[in-house]
Structure formats: C-alpha cells, structure tokens
C-alpha cells in the first residue's frame, strides 16, 4: 500500500490524540475508586451518583443557559461580520476583521483578566451574564470563520438574480441567501455551543459564585473521592460534544453539497 509507514504513523498519532478520551469511559464504568490499572469491575454507580449531585445539576443548568445564549449571540454577530466581509469592500476592513478575529490567538487568560479588571472596576456583579459576555466574544471568531465559508461559497449573482427578478434586497436575502447559508448558521450555532460548554478559564474568572460544568469539574478534582463520578460526567460531556460536532459537520457538508461546491474539509 502506498505510504504504508506514513499510514502506520498516522494511526499511532490518532491513537495518541484519542488516548485520553478513550480512557474516560473505561474508568467511568470501573468500580475501583482509584484511577489506575488493573480494572476492578463494571459499575454505573458513578453516573447515578453524578446525576444525583445537586451542585452538578446547578452547574449543568448554568452551562446550558450560557452555551445557548453565547451560541445565539455569537452566530448573530458572526452573520453580520461574515456578510460584511464577503459581500462588501470598505475602508479599514483588515484592522476591523483583525480585531474581531483576535480572540482566536489571544490567550484566554489575557481576555479574562482584562475583562475582569474592567468589570470589577465598573462594579459589575459577576454572574452568568458576564460569562455569556466573554463566551460570545470567544465564539464570535469561530462563527465568523464558519459563516464566511458559507457566504463565500455563494455565487454573488444568485442574489443579483433574485433582485433582478423583482424582489427587494431584503427579500433577495431572505429567499435566496438565508436558505443557502442555513447549514452554516446551524453549524455555527452548534460549534459555538460546544465551545462555550467546554470553556473553563473565562467561566472560572467571570462567573462569580455560579458554577458551570467545567468549573464544577475543576473544583471536584481536588478530592480523589470525587474523581470516578467526574469521569462519568466527563464521559457524558465528551459524548455530547462529539454528537454536536458530528451534527455540525453534517450540516456544514450539506451546505457545501447544496451550493455545489467542493469540500475542502474540516473546521478552522
């Protein structure tokens, strides 16, 4: 087979990538209280124990509120940015896009610290809203990237054709552009939701006393006794992420297929 050595290397690399994720369910179902080999026996106790944890449920509710709000806000802002940059040329396009995309390369610690300093300086109380604020900022560049791809794959004359056939500009957008970028919008919503759900640093510093799932997990890691239930929670969380991503990828590809483009593959 062509590139046999390379293929073997790539497979080992994949194993390296997946090693931690594969271990997660193994220990989530292991009845031993210590995370170590050899395995003891099979149990679902950790899941039951986690489901019954009130603090966890509160963290879950918070996380869902934050992730849903951030996903919607980031995607809406992303639509504006993607539409503006793909359709129009305007002065200062480079710097403006640069600032919008900056959270992609800016360490989260800087984002959260500077935002925290301002919020504390203004006397704003830290709560879910402040986390949503930070997460929207963080998710926005990802939304822009996904939506830009979606808007870019559109032939500009499609919109002109609708306009030429007598529709108003808004209706041309609603009847032609929106349905065609809808897979991108769904993909962006799911992606932003996933990012927000998994995000730790901003939530850690900006949530005040409100827990989110990652900060809850972080707080539990100090107690060895709590680790098996955390493995169970982690398993659920990873499963959710994988599921959401698969759906997001499905919509992204459908979008590509719909507009007749060729798939360049992958996010980012």
């Amino acid at each position: 087979m062509k590139g046999g050595g390379l293929r073997a290397y790539a497979l080992i690399y994949l194993l390296f990538l997946y090693a931690p994720i594969l271990l997660l369910p193994i220990f989530a179902f292991n009845s031993g209280t210590v995370i170590a080999f050899p395995l003891k026996g099979f149990t679902t106790d950790w899941f039951v124990q986690m489901a019954g944890n009130a603090a966890m449920r509160r963290a879950l509710t918070n996380s869902l509120i934050i992730a849903t709000s951030s996903a919607i806000l980031a995607t809406c802002l992303g639509i504006f940015a993607a539409r503006a940059t793909t359709r129009f040329s305007f002065p200062g396009k480079g710097p403006i896009t640069g600032l919008i995309m900056l959270p992609l390369v800016m360490p989260e610690i800087i984002i959260s610290m500077s935002l925290l300093v301002v919020l504390l300086g203004l006397g704003v109380k830290l709560n879910l809203l402040t986390v949503i604020m930070g997460h929207t900022l963080l998710c926005m560049p990802y939304a822009v990237v996904i939506l830009t791809t979606a808007f870019n794959s559109l032939d500009r004359s499609l919109e002109e054709a609708a306009y030429d056939l007598g529709e108003s500009k808004w209706n041309a957008f609603r009847l032609v552009i929106l349905p065609l970028v809808m897979p991108g919008i769904i993909s962006s919503l799911l992606m932003s939701f996933t990012i927000s759900l998994d995000e730790f640093i901003i939530a850690f510093f900006l949530a005040g006393n409100e827990p989110t799932l990652p900060t809850f997990i972080y707080s539990q890691l100090r107690f060895p006794k709590q680790i098996p239930p955390i493995m169970a929670l982690g398993t659920v969380l990873v499963l959710m992420s994988v599921l959401l991503l698969t759906v997001a990828e499905y919509f992204r590809r459908r979008g590509v297929a719909k507009t007749g483009g060729t798939d360049s593959g992958g996010f980012l």
Binding site: A84, R87, F90, K93, I96, S114, M140
Partner: peptide, 25 residues
C-alpha cells in the same frame, strides 16, 4: 463602503467593547 461598515458595525463594536476597551484598560 457605507453598507459594509453598517453591517460590520455590531460585531466590531462588540469586539471593541469587550476586548479592545479591556485591553486598553
């Protein structure tokens, strides 16, 4: 240019407010 700037204004203003201003602070 005006249409482009109008469209890009909301995300830009958001980034300016939540990222730009804090960094300057």
């Amino acid at each position: 240019a005006a249409q482009g700037l109008t469209l890009v204004a909301p995300p830009f203003a958001y980034a300016l407010l939540v990222l730009g201003a804090p960094l300057l602070t």
